[in-house]
Design a binder for these strands. Structure first.
Lengths: 205, 205, 205, 205
DNA sequence: AATGAATGAGCATTCATTCAT
DNA sequence: TATGAATGAATGCTCATTCAT
């Protein structure tokens, strides 16, 4: 029995769709109740499938969380690299990175919650994550700052990695506050505020 | 038969000691295995008491974690207030706050791990915490920045609360990185780096 | 459109072949992992078919095990009857039965394992089996002994059914030991040892 | 705080009692439904305790089954050795062993079922068991036969180990048949029948 | 106050079976 | 007939909490 190319394509699409549905459902559930308080059954129900079906696509509950991180970071980094490749100066690049950071997470509150909250819920995850996508992300910032130092746009009495952590930390805190805030406000514009301080400092000239 | 004042005092001291022992034990255990993976029995064993005894001092496992936060924040804020009260200018105050922040957490790695990791392990905790000690802490920073703006030392085109979050976020990231780092280095000196950027920005003058 | 007789015959052969393949696969799998630890998926994979296909030939996993017993006992009894029909004396018949018993199981270790181990893994199976092929098998032995008593070759102060169980039990134990033995030795020759004792006893004359 | 010797004794007795109760309950439940079909909850309920309590006395369901075997074999072998130590001749010793075998299992039908059925339900158990108590038991029989050969009471053209297996197999079959029989009859008297054949054979002199 | 044995609710995962294709 | 994705019932074990002593 042979399948036409299109039916194979369909089958793949269906598989991808179900995986995707589980991932989306998991993001919602994890965001709402936290990883440890979420039951696999909750995810399955939200995804509209049977409990056991989850295990046709993921090996364990743990793997679902990992997949969420991996996929999001991958997309995020890919898009970031693509965008900054077209930008000339280091300061403009950093600006775009900061904006992208807050745009992306500001556009998907549930994903943001999982990133800000669950990712930090265990040293295990943090360690794995730090050695993974996050390290690459931080490295892009560090590298950009380093280039800015070489081109003379940034001061040179700062270690690029330290400056990178400061920028990342400031952006990260914007996200965390936004998540926890009861008021709904747009996250993306906060990037400019962060950059204002990061570039110019708070001291009156 | 009546207890003398001194015996009551002793009893209270014993109670405080045991509470303290449980709290110290819990910080160690939570830091090592994470809140959800820690058993109350682990804490009891580390504290050298029976499982049931824990419940004579705390209503639940959850309450232990809360107490850790509450007590640490309380101490932290009290010390912070005391120290900055003696400092004249806003920038010097901010400097002291930043140093204190990293000194304190840098001096107790287990406590730092619990703060950085477990505090963020659930939205529930974060929300409660945000409304509690953390809000007060951030408010002290915000207020100091506001004063600096009035006195002309800080630029005024920034919302004080936003600047406060940026400073806090940058410091927080220093702590997180320090915890996850495999190399052992002193945390406190990082305060100066953060302040360098926060005050002066990264842009070359 | 009608199927010719020959195509029906072919279809039947195919059906029989696939049933047979499943049965052979199941014997191997059950022998290796035990009935309860064997998955229907394991059997299907070993048989080279899809999981669902198993259910076109058997109603349940349970039925597969039953079929293994039924078919093996049927073959066994048929061959036994055929062989002893040509033998004159009761003692020679018993001899042939014992040899056949060990020859058959000794020639198919997997089948032997399933018989010795899985058959006894549940009272349910044992009861059903006892009322089925096994009863008939034991009855053949009993009947042969009874004939031997009538013809004067066997002593008459023993109930034939009891003597039959003794012979069966002794043979059965040879099989069990052979299965569990780490050394590989031929099973069939043990029949003569069993018969030596069964016929003559262990007492020195 | 000190416990008197008697209160320690009581505590031990309580512990032993509860372990014992769980073991007795497990024997009943396993005998009725088979190991794999028995739930730990069934055992707990039959023992009159909570599910979790089972795990204060046993590490796993598997360990319960092992304990049943180990304890029973231990008792059995100890009693067997004690009894035969007082008997002079090898044939009388064998007689006593056979009687004891059927007396013991005949006195506790549930235990007999677990031994005959569950012990054989998995190659894993059988292998472990064969290397354990069972091997020792068979060795006692073998050794007794060997002595009988030396003293001239048994014929010497048989390997003692083979003769031992034959005797054991015959006795074992008596037990299995007794368990599966719908009629209730005393098991112990069957020992004499087995011995009659084992000693003298079925052949008419 | 202190103990630690007992409790029992809670859950990730497996797998025999079904059924749309 | 054959497939294999989907189902969902079933269960051993953990551990926060209680309570008799």
């Amino acid at each position: 029995m042979q399948r036409s190319d299109s039916s194979i394509g369909q089958a793949r699409a269906v598989i991808a769709d179900k995986r995707e549905a589980i991932l989306r459902a998991a993001i919602k559930v994890f965001a709402q109740k936290g990883y440890f308080n979420s039951k696999v059954a909750d995810i399955a129900k939200k995804a509209g499938i049977a409990d056991g079906t989850v295990y046709l696509y993921f090996k364990s509950k743990d793997e679902i969380l990992h997949s969420i991180f991996d996929r999001a970071m991958e997309e995020f980094i890919a898009e970031g690299k693509r965008e900054i490749a077209e930008i000339e100066t280091a300061d403009k690049r950093l600006e775009r990175i900061a904006q992208l950071h807050l745009e992306k997470l500001g556009a998907d509150r549930d994903l943001a919650v999982v990133f800000q909250v669950e990712l930090r819920g265990s040293t295990k995850f943090m360690e794995e994550f730090s050695g993974g996508g996050f390290a690459e992300y931080l490295d892009i910032i560090r590298h950009t700052i380093s280039e800015g130092q070489k081109s003379g746009v940034f001061r040179t009495d700062l270690k690029p990695i330290t400056a990178a952590k400061i920028l990342y930390g400031a952006l990260d805190e914007m996200v965390t506050n936004w998540i926890l805030s009861k008021r709904a406000y747009p996250l993306a514009p906060m990037a400019d505020e962060v950059l204002k301080v990061f570039f110019g400092g708070v001291t009156q000239q």
